[in-house]
Design a protein around this nucleic acid. Structure first.
Lengths: 229, 229
DNA sequence: GTCGAAAATTTGGTATACCAAAAATTGTTG
DNA sequence: CAACAATTTTTGGTATACCAAATTTTCGAC
């Protein structure tokens, strides 16, 4: 694959730092300073910040440095509601459009999660989980849906990652994923929508819990030190 | 409202030219030439082109000038499938979340269309039609949904505009919009989803017909003159 | 007339400089 | 000590120049 332009490389690096908490919510991203640190000019840095702002990972402020977004639960919940609709559409279309290769791919990812859930590194397992959902979107054979779905996966990555890490539940995840796969293999759109609905309901609850905990932690820190950004 | 930056103004102007057919599908947008014509530098022009590419109105090509997108029916149909899911979610959430002001706004737009459909300029009427759909999205009180829905409205504007202009059917549109409004006013999510489904099915058929006609027209022109871009 | 090589042109990407506006900081006064 | 004014700093946006790569055009040989 062709080498990415500088702006995309910078966006990827910043995205990784944000998703891994190296750049925590509220941290400012100074265009000039960050560019100098990376030995690049402002132009690709500016472009990269724009990319991340579009993904909802960074918040642009007029005449102030952009900051790493710290979405309230309500914002995340809004995005999750849209993601649920997209995933339901994915599963529904996959029931109709998926080829044998698509189904094999989806099943293979489920089997891999089943085998390796406990041994694998949590981040790796989380990424496999995301690839499961992406594989279903790809099986829909709807390019616009794939693109929008990917955008929401990226936006929600951090919240979902925290939720997945802190509320790991192997049996529940495998059971719910299995229901989804079986519905798609059976070509049953209604069953697929229901299975997606149950799975995403669990996830929403997990995210709510995790964000509440993070918010409590942050408020305690803010009161203690009086810190602002 | 604060004055927009140059890049956004340029994007708006190019968008208008594209949607109105002044820049037809396939026309190239030369960064340097267009910038010089508008008396601006490449930087805001480049940014504007990026904005339109994100909206699907412009197709970026490596080492070649971007061109005005000429989506195949399949691409448009894919986007419409996603838009249908978003509109159903809008209507569903609006049933729960809409305030009295939201309902009044939606009803007012319907009444305005009913009164002025035949007299008003077709472009004005089309824009009112779009504002009807936007009002429902706004009534959902889900910011992420509003943003994604707006993005899809923009991407699909040209196809929908052509379809609306060439297959105008006042009674059908008013009837279908009325069903949607009544379902939302009744707070009935299922009825709202059904009404949206019927309405968008009609629209998809109209778009299919119009794109088939446009494609036939373009192929005839290409064969005749051998023109390429 | 065709084909291949060389030259020219076009293009996207990036670096750097400058400007106006907004925000933050500092100093002065009451 | 607080408020206000002046100054400084930071910032986003834009203009311009340059470069490497890709594409197109031109030219020469067969």
């Amino acid at each position: 694959m062709p080498e990415k332009i500088l702006a995309e490389q910078i966006a990827n690096q910043l995205r990784r730092d944000i998703l891994r908490g190296i750049l925590p919510p509220g941290a400012s991203i100074k265009e000039r300073d960050n560019a100098a640190e990376m030995g690049v000019s402002r132009t690709p840095m500016r472009e990269a910040i724009r990319i991340l702002a579009k993904e909802g990972l960074v918040l642009l402020r007029p005449s102030r440095s952009p900051i790493v977004a710290r979405p309230a639960f309500e914002e995340v919940a809004d995005q999750v509601a849209v993601l649920v609709a997209l995933e339901k559409l994915s599963a529904e279309l996959a029931c109709r459009e998926a080829g044998a290769g698509d189904l094999a791919q989806i099943r293979a990812i489920l089997d891999e999660m089943d085998r390796n859930f406990d041994q694998a590194d949590p981040l790796d397992m989380f990424e496999i989980d995301m690839s499961f959902h992406s594989a279903i979107a790809l099986a829909s054979h709807n390019a616009a849906l794939v693109e929008t779905h990917t955008s929401y996966l990226q936006r929600l990555w951090h919240a979902r990652y925290l939720a997945a890490i802190q509320r790991r539940n192997r049996d529940r995840v495998i059971r719910q994923h299995t229901r989804i796969v079986e519905a798609i293999e059976a070509g049953d759109p209604e069953a697929a929508r229901d299975a997606i609905g149950v799975h995403m309901q669990s996830m929403t609850e997990d995210i709510r819990t995790v964000i509440a905990e993070e918010t409590a932690k942050i408020e305690k820190t803010d009161i203690k030190t009086g810190e602002t950004t």
